[in-house]
Amino acid sequence: MGGRRLSLNWIGAVPFLVYVAVFLLLPTSIITAGAFLKGDGSATLSNFQDLSRPYVISATVNSILLSALTAIVGASFGALLAYAIATGNPQGLLRRVVVSAAGVLAQFGGVTLAFAFLASIGPAGLVTILAKQYGINVYAGGFWIYDIRGLELVYLYFQIPLMVLVFLPAVDGIKPQWREAAESLGGTTWHYWRYVAGPLLAPAFLGCTLLLFANSFSAYATANALINQGGIILPQQIANALSSEVGLHEPGFAKAMAVTMIVIVVMVTVLYSLLQRRTSKWLQ
């Protein structure tokens, strides 16, 4: 009597917490701990010192540039597409088709996506052959599809639809009254975008761009299916260090590289959440 009753409200969150613990926290802990261990199990910082190897730096730079470029281009095109469908009929066929397609394409990666690109614009792809018949050689400058430029193109295939999905709610939150209010107060279309819609959408746009960056930064399967020799991006270097056929088996070093990636993705995710929080306060 009179004692505080134990709240059982948290019970509903148990499955989620268990899921997060098993599939996120546990692997992260294992990787982080492993990054500080030698092959014999003794503690070391040498795995992190090895991150300065030239090929690791090159792969890290490639990963960051690839992710930044596909995030910016994907965000720009995806935002335009999201805006186009948001201004149309909310129940219209176009919107339903685009949103459904984006939902599928945003998850379309790995071997199937790599194969789809090779079959269409690979050196022996259908589009490549058709283009040749019209005198266009898409590989005049070399087989770029197996290079970082190939990855950029292929990544955009899932980056743009992902942007449509994550940015659409923000665009939907823009109320038509705001444009009319700006107009009736003497504003032009430029003023509306400069002072109203732009500032309102900017945090969401930046947040979604960061999400796209993280999405690209952590992608592995598509790159590996397309380019299975060497390692031009960081996830491939991690794979090589874990199961190299020619080099040393270096699980500690692989984990140190993985920790680097985790740190970058965590930073990006925190920034994303902060920006989302700011927008959701305005656009609720």
Binding site: K175, Q177, A181, A182, W282
Partner: peptide, 8 residues
């Protein structure tokens, strides 16, 4: 306007 017209 009817509502929700302030720039948030």
């Amino acid at each position: 306007f009817q509502a929700y017209s302030l720039f948030p």
